[in-house]
């Protein structure tokens, strides 16, 4: 009985060791979808392009685990907010391009406005007008 408990504890320990300290910021929950939609609203892109764009524009501050982009893109596709098709990439390779659908554009507008309301509220609390 004890033996098994010990094994479990060791496991959870190793998981916490796997986290690497970094100066980059964790994303607020739920914002990844909005970032993807916003990025795709400017132009059609493949997955790597989306990751690069978020990294460059945020000047390396936002930490997006690049892999987590793909489940998110799948989810957005299933929700009908994003559509994809295969095409030629710039260096002449087969690549999947994602684009925003009309429903995606509406969803982006909604999450943008609720996000800016949230930001305003936080800003007012943090810097009260004295």
């Amino acid at each position: 009985m004890l033996g098994i408990d010990r094994i479990r504890r060791t496991c959870s320990h190793s998981v916490s060791m796997g986290k690497i300290r970094t100066d980059r910021q964790e994303l607020l929950p739920g914002t990844l979808d909005m970032l993807i939609l916003k990025t795709l609203s400017r132009q059609v892109m493949h997955g790597y392009g989306v990751a690069e764009h978020i990294r460059q524009v945020s000047s390396d501050v936002l930490k997006v685990e690049e892999g987590s982009l793909y489940p998110a893109l799948q989810r957005l596709q299933l929700q009908g907010l994003v559509a994809s098709e295969w095409g030629q990439s710039a260096n002449n390779r087969r690549a999947r391009y994602y684009r925003l659908t009309a429903a995606g554009r509406r969803a982006l507008g909604e999450s943008e406005s609720s996000f800016s309301r949230l930001m305003d509220a936080i800003a007012r609390v943090m810097k009260p007008a004295t």
């Binding site: 997955g47 790597y48 690069e52 892999g67 295969w86 690549a95």
Partner: peptide, 17 residues
């Protein structure tokens, strides 16, 4: 298969970069 391709390409593109 598509997803596997896509991921491989992503990693390759990052490496190249």
């Amino acid at each position: 298969d598509d997803l596997r391709d896509e991921i491989a390409q992503h990693i390759d593109a990052r490496r190249q970069q």
